[in-house]
Amino acid sequence: MSLMLTSNQAHGMNYAEAAREIAARLAVGNDDIAAAGALQLAIEAWKCLAGTDLAWDRYGLELLDVRARLYSDHDDVVVDAGAPVRDNAETRLAVTTLLEQLARYHDRLAADDGDDLAGRLSHDAGAQQLRRAVAALV
């Protein structure tokens, strides 16, 4: 499934624009498709920029574990956006802002009494891992 960011959004937006748009969607509520899109976009940055700095490797390990535990049923979500082309301040800001918002999303799920204890703990652990990924890049 392709994640449509907005109905009037042009296809192929750049990476930073897509990251900002998805972060905004996550900020307004519990949107599991936007969350899966955020993780997919964050992993795309790792795939493109790994090898430029060891920080991206530490970042990627955290994301891959979160994906395996919390997003295994969302493999079909794809964000139509350009890949990041260079490791610079704009890219890192877009990625870290996106992941901070995704961590807040998981914090909200961890606090939701509608989920069982194991699910809440898993979301809490995911939020912590996302924050470690952010810390690796700053």
Rank of each mutant, 00 (worst) to 15 (best):
Q40D: 13
G51L: 07
A23L: 01
R20A: 15
A27S: 15
D31P: 10
L39K: 07
A23D: 01
I43D: 09
R25N: 07
A10D: 12
E44K: 14
G60T: 09
T52N: 08
T52A: 01
L54N: 13
A34R: 09
D32F: 11
A24P: 01
H11L: 13
G29M: 10
D32R: 15
L54Y: 10
Y59G: 07
N14E: 12
N30H: 11
A34K: 05
L26S: 00
L49D: 05
A23Y: 02
R58M: 13
C48G: 05
V28L: 04
Y15Q: 01
Y15G: 05
G29Q: 08
G37D: 02
Q40K: 14
C48H: 04
R25C: 03
A42Y: 10
D53R: 04
A55T: 10
L54R: 13
A18S: 08
D53G: 01
W56Q: 02
G12E: 03
A55C: 11
A19P: 03
A23P: 01
Y15H: 07
A55W: 08
C48L: 04
A45C: 13
C48D: 12
A36G: 15
E17A: 14
A36V: 11
N30C: 09
G51E: 06
G51D: 06
I22R: 03
I22F: 08
V28H: 12
L54M: 12
A10R: 15
T52Q: 11
N14H: 11
A50P: 06
L49A: 09
L39Y: 03
G51Y: 07
A42N: 08
L49S: 03
W46S: 13
L26Q: 01
